[in-house]
Computed example of a mutant assay.
Amino acid sequence: MENTPTLLTNRLILRQFVREDLPALFSILSDPEVNTFLPWFTHQSMEETLSFLQTNFLETYSLPLGYRYAICLKEDHIPIGYINISPNESHDLGYGIHRNFWHQGIATEAGKCLLDHIQKVKTIPFITATHDRKNPNSGKVMQNLGMHYCYSYQEQWQPKNIPVIFRMYQMNLDGNVHKIYSQYWDQYPIHFIETDL
């Protein structure tokens, strides 16, 4: 079974990245504002983005599980962002959107489409997602997707090597409403539950 089938929404096409998407991906990853709350440093060259494209997208499509998509508008098929679910045990949802398309519901629309697909094929029992506490807009996307806040923790974030307080959200897809992914809670000594969200 293809692990990244093309998906459609009213405005968007979610598809596999191809090498020809390099300029569009560089435009996203080279923007300092877009990358403020992302784990990697702002890209400085096409070569850097090509390596990222190959490692994080092109070479993953042969793996048995994991969803890594280019988010494109239907009218031109050019990537304006990306969305993925990691194949590891956290099933972490991640996304990034070109700054020109912020505040238009793109991440939520793409996320709902991907979650609908996953619930149909029943390959993943739950998903998690984390966001920097200083970036509440990302948390709003998680809430709009129906995810629920579980806890917060402080991590010395790499490769930027800065302390970040993350909020962890989760959605259970297998009917087990009480399951909470606890690895971050167990791994990081500074952890707590915020009650004023």
Rank of each mutant, 00 (worst) to 15 (best):
M1V: 13
E2L: 14
N3R: 14
L7K: 06
I13P: 00
F17S: 03
R19C: 15
R19S: 07
A24I: 03
I28K: 02
S30V: 08
F37A: 08
T42L: 12
H43Q: 08
F52S: 09
L53M: 05
E59R: 10
T60C: 07
Y61A: 05
L65V: 13
Y69C: 01
I71D: 02
K74S: 15
H77Y: 11
I78C: 07
I85H: 00
I85D: 00
P87M: 06
Y95P: 00
G96M: 11
H98W: 04
W102C: 10
Q104E: 15
I106K: 00
E109C: 03
K112I: 06
K112C: 14
L115C: 04
I118P: 02
I118F: 04
V121R: 07
T123M: 10
T123L: 08
I127G: 00
A129P: 03
H131A: 06
N135L: 10
P136K: 06
G139K: 03
G139A: 13
V141C: 02
M147I: 09
S152L: 01
Y153C: 14
E155R: 12
Q156M: 14
Q158M: 09
K160N: 13
N161A: 09
P163W: 14
V164W: 09
I165H: 10
I165R: 05
R167N: 12
Y169H: 07
Y169T: 02
H178P: 00
I180M: 10
Q183L: 08
I190M: 11
I190N: 12
H191G: 08
H191K: 08
L197K: 14
